[in-house]
Write a protein that binds this DNA or RNA. Sequence first.
DNA 1: CCTGTGCCTGACAACGATGTCATGTAGCAT
DNA 2: ATGCTACATGACATCGTTGTCAGGCACAGG
Lengths: 350, 350
Amino acid sequence: MTTMSNRYRAEPGNNRPTMRDVAALAGVGTKTVSRVMNDEAGVTEATRLRVLKATEQLNYQLDIAAGSLRRTGRRTLSIGLLLPSVANPFSGEIHRAIEDGLAARGIAVFAASLDDDPEREKTLVAAFLRRRVDGLVLTPIAKSQAYVIPEHSRDLPMVFIDREPVGIEADAVVTDNAVGAARAAAHLISHGHRKLAYLGDRTDIQTARERRRGFTEELGRAGIATSTIPILEDLHDEESACRAAHALLGSDDPPTAVFSSQNLITFGAMRALKDRGLNRTTALVGFDDFSLSDMMDPGITVIAQHPERIGKLAAERLLARIDGDHVAPRTYVVPTELIPRGSGELRPPN
Amino acid sequence: MTTMSNRYRAEPGNNRPTMRDVAALAGVGTKTVSRVMNDEAGVTEATRLRVLKATEQLNYQLDIAAGSLRRTGRRTLSIGLLLPSVANPFSGEIHRAIEDGLAARGIAVFAASLDDDPEREKTLVAAFLRRRVDGLVLTPIAKSQAYVIPEHSRDLPMVFIDREPVGIEADAVVTDNAVGAARAAAHLISHGHRKLAYLGDRTDIQTARERRRGFTEELGRAGIATSTIPILEDLHDEESACRAAHALLGSDDPPTAVFSSQNLITFGAMRALKDRGLNRTTALVGFDDFSLSDMMDPGITVIAQHPERIGKLAAERLLARIDGDHVAPRTYVVPTELIPRGSGELRPPN
DNA sequence: CCTGTGCCTGACAACGATGTCATGTAGCAT
DNA sequence: ATGCTACATGACATCGTTGTCAGGCACAGG
C-alpha cells in the first residue's frame, strides 16, 4: 500500500492531469503548453488549438501554486485580508470592494476574522505568510504591528485599513474619525443643544479615541466646558450601551442630545431612548450608517462611513505596491458624511 | 539585468529565506528542518531547538504551497467558498461559521462573490481549482452544476449550501424553506387571517420557489382557495417590493396579512405599510431575520434561518469528505424558527 | 546554392518542500 | 567483543510549473 508507485494515489480516480499529460496528448513539449496556458506569444495558432483541445479533453487546469514556485517574482495571485469579522456588515462591504478591485487581475482573497484578538492577528498573518500571499490588507488590533517589519522590508505589499498601524511605517486607509465626530457635535450644537453626552467604544481602540477627540474638540470650539459633558466609554456591545444610556437618561440632569460612537452603541442608545419614551425628544446622532436607519421613529441621523471607498482605495494601493510602486507610505483618509434623518435634528425643549 | 543570477532578485531585499538557509544555519539537513516545522517525530530535542533558533533568526516561514506539491494527498490547506456576496450579512454569517469550523485544522478560506451571475460561478470555481483547493463550498446559481462533475469524481470534496445543486449528486446544506414558509402561513391563519398575500423573489431561484410552494400548500391545508390569494413574484430588491406592496395594499380588496419571502422584500413591504399607515393594522411575517427587527413598530415577526448552523454543518461535512468519508451524498436540512415580535400577531379587523 | 534572420519549439534545470531510503550511531543483550 | 535493534539524520529524487537557452526550420536576399 505504502510502496505503491507515485504515479497512482491510494484514492481511486484522484489523478488530476498535469501539463505533461496535456503535452503528451497534444504531441508538444510542456513548455509549449505553458506558453498557451499563459497566453504567451510565440505559438502558432495551429499548435495553440491542438493544445487547447487537449486541455479540454483532459479537463486540465493550470496549477497556479506550482507555477508560482518558478515564476518571476513568485507571485501566487492571492492576498490575505484580515477583518474584524467577515460576519460584520461593515467589514463585508470592505471585503467586497477589495475583491472587486483585485478580480480584474485574477487575484484571489484569503479572508479571516480577527475577533478583537491581538494574538489572532499575529497567528493569522503568519498563516497568510506561509501561503506566500502577494500582499496583505490588515485591520490592526494588536498594540504594535512591528512584528511584520521583516516582511515589510522584504517588500511584501501591505495596506492597513480602518486603523493606522503602530510601530511600522506603511500605507493605511482610514475613515476621518475625528472630523466625523466633530461634525456630529457641531450638528447637534447648531440645533441648539448644549447638554450633550458621549457614548463610546473601548478606549484601547484607536478609532474610538479619535472619535472622542473630535467630539470633545468641537465642544471646546463651541465654548462648552468639556467637564460638564458626560463621556461614557468602554461600551462594546448593545447591552452595555443600553445600560449606560439608561443611566444617563435617568439622571437628575439628563442630556438633550446623545452621540454614539459606533453601530452597536447606537442600537443600545436607541433602545434606551425608546424604553423611556424619549426617542422623539432627545436628539441622537450615531457614528456608522446602518440599514433601516430611515425606518426608525424618527429616522436616525448618522455619520456615514464609506466602507466601499475604503476597500476600493486599499485595493488600489495594494495593486500599486504589487506593481512596484515605491513611494513613501502614507495614510489615506476617506471622508465621512452626515446623513440627517430626523433624530439629529430634534431641538432641545424650550 | 535579466541575466542576473537566480539567487538574487531584481528587487532589493526580496530574499525570503528557504529551508536550505535554515538548514545551513542550524547545521542540519533540510529534511530535519522539515521534520521540525511539521512537528514530526524523530528529532532530538537538542536538534529541534537548534532548528527553531535558526528559523527565528532568519524569520523563516514554511512555504505551504511548495510543500503541498510533494505532500501526500497534495493538500494545500485551503478551500474555496462561493457566496452570493461577501457583503451580504447572511452570507457573512455562513462565512464566519465555516472559517471557525476549519480554523482548527489550519485551513484557510478563499472567499468570492457570485452576484447572481451563472457565468461568474463557473469562472470563480475554475479559479479555485487552479489554486488546488482541498475542497469547495458553493452557493449554486447556474442552471446546472454538472460542470464540476469531473472534479467531483476526482474526489474533490464539495458541499453546496443554501440551494441544492442540479445535475450532480453532492452534499448540500439547506434551509427548510418550504416548512418555514408554511409555518408563516399557518401562523397568520391561526391569527384569524384568510386574506393573505405573498411577495416573492425571482422565480429562477430555487429557494424562492420552495418558499412559495410551502406557503401555498399550507393555504390548501387550511382550505383557502389559492386562486383568491395574490402571489406577486420576481421582486428582487426593496424598491420593487415596495411598489408591489403598495399596489396590493391600495387595491379594492387589500389583504389583511402579508408574507414576504426574503429580507429586502420584507423591507419594501414594511416601507409600504408604514407609508400607508397600515403597519399596526396589516399583519406581516418575513422570511429571514434581520437586526433591529425588534425595534420596528410593531416588531417584525420573522421566519429566522440559521446561517451559523448552515455554515457549521457545511464545514463539518467538508472536513469529513476531506478526511476520506465516502458515504453517499445527501442533503442536510437546517430548520427555521418562527420568532414572534408583533407584526405577525396582528389580527384582522372585526 | 549559401547565408542570415526570425520565429517556433522543446530540453533542461530550478523553484521550495517532502517521501523514501540508506547510513550512521548509540544502547543493549549475548 | 560481537551482533542486533532502534532511532536520528541527511542524500536524493520528485511534485508541476516556468525561465533560459539552444536547436531547427522557413523564408528572403545575395
